[in-house]
Write a protein that binds this DNA or RNA. Structure first.
Lengths: 100, 100
DNA sequence: TTTACATATCGAGAATTATCGAAATGACGG
DNA sequence: CCGTCATTTCGATAATTCTCGATATGTAAA
């Protein structure tokens, strides 16, 4: 859990929004076609649609967020679903509360 | 209190360190010549010495941190002292806890 | 095994940040 | 007022990040 790396993720409005949206996917995304519920998160395409940015940009964002361990990918067929990694998110906030 | 702007400050190891040092100035800095205690924080020169970066770089850092309202400047004669703005720091952490 | 689709990666140009030395500002002591 | 010292601001260059379109990879369906 690297404070600087995570802070870099959070220093962009779109990426902060993605994290927020993923907290309540059912409120922010349509249901998936192949999958019931959002237990594994949301597919890349839906996130891209919501941001309006290019596919490659969003893929890059998500990959950086995953590198910082803020989100967890799961592959289902052609789709990659991303969900929040609550453990690391809490650890980050706790680290700030305690050490900052 | 702007999450993105504050996160930008925190996305640099030196700036995170400065915030940490300012929490317990007496542990990290020598006493000031003209002033008793650290109620108004620490002067720029001491912070610069501790980081090893150039004076102008540190001044730029501090000015960005002040713009994000993370620190508060006080002028005493020739010196500018910076101290933490606990209110905004807490607000940031609370906002993350609540909204992120 | 081709085709089609979702996502990832690559390569590039634009924008922002990092960092410095030099010059400007502001405050004090003489 | 002058010179000195602490800090800020300026101008420049290097490094990083942003963002895209194009291409590659992986998976499923035909």
């Amino acid at each position: 859990m690297d404070i600087v790396e995570i802070s870099k993720v959070l220093s962009n409005k779109t990426r902060v929004n993605i994290l927020k949206w993923l907290r309540e996917p059912e409120k922010h995304f349509p249901p998936h076609v192949d999958i019931e519920g959002f237990d594994d998160g949301v597919c890349v395409g839906y996130i891209q649609d919501k941001t309006g940015l290019s596919q490659s940009t969003i893929s890059t964002y998500l990959s950086g967020m995953q590198k910082a361990q803020l989100i967890i990918p799961t592959r289902h067929g052609k789709w990659t679903y991303y969900r929040r990694n609550e453990r690391v998110i809490s650890a980050y906030i706790n680290a700030l509360s305690k050490d900052l």
